[in-house]
Amino acid sequence: MAAVEALNITHRYGRVTALDDISFNVNEGELFGFIGPDGAGKTTLFRIAATLIIPAGGRMTLFGLNTVSRYRELRNHIGYMPGRFSLYQDLTVEENLNFYATIFGTTIKENYHLIELIYKQIEPFRKRQAGRLSGGMKQKLALSCALIHKPGILILDEPTTGVDAVSRTEFWEMLANLKSEGITIIVSTPYMDEALRCDRIALIQKGKLLAIDTPFNIRSSYARKLYAVSHPDRYRLLIALRSLPQVITSEPFGDSVHVVLRDDVLPPEVKKALEETGLHGVSIAGTMPGIEDVFLELMQKEQ
């Protein structure tokens, strides 16, 4: 049985279509990522999955239970972490955790093994009010509270947004641990590089799914040969590349520019053309497309 089945989900806010005919399945025990920018529809989709809003069209089931008609039962199996910190700011760390355990009819002790690795890091501050925690600590507390009733599925809405690269790495390590406990996880993120940590991902933009597959297959789906071009003066390089008829697309990526060339063009020709514009010492090498290359390609196709 699939952990999540979504069929033709559509949702609107007034005249704005937030989700447009979205279908996907998530397998049990899978770490499934939704990758897309602000306004793509990630939060709306997750709220539907968390039984918090009723979709305008289509249907979704979690563990075979419909999110609209069976929401009460279903809530016992869902751990939801919204994008905005929404625990009680004036309760302490311990009080928050106790509160969530109690409303789900369990105790901290009963499921402590599930949260131990995460909670241990904030336990020294268990008497501190939640509102006075740092960002990273709030995130750990929110995850502990979402886990304390031993849910079958975790729904995490942008848990790493605005979080620094170190804490982000730690957070994904925690998710990998939870996955090994058999918990299904759906998670959204605007950081494309985090896609590589998921079993499968869906690329989402303007309410539509652009692709669903493993990160490897998505990277392999990039149809064209991609080159990384670099020169110390990146802005000049970019302007020069844009002016060349041999170049189809050129996009800055970290310390290089990712370039697609016309079919009949080879790198030495481009190097020579760049030299003619006065740019010497440019290096060009073939490179493996990343998730973001694919996302850009699919976005351009949509437009």
Partner: peptide, 24 residues
């Protein structure tokens, strides 16, 4: 201060081109 937080990859690049242009 984190000017591109949550922005799509196309806009993020256009934004950085504005930064380059401004610095130049």
């Amino acid at each position: 201060d984190e000017p591109t937080s949550g922005v799509d990859p196309v806009t993020r690049r256009q934004f950085w081109e504005m930064i380059y242009e401004t610095a130049s």
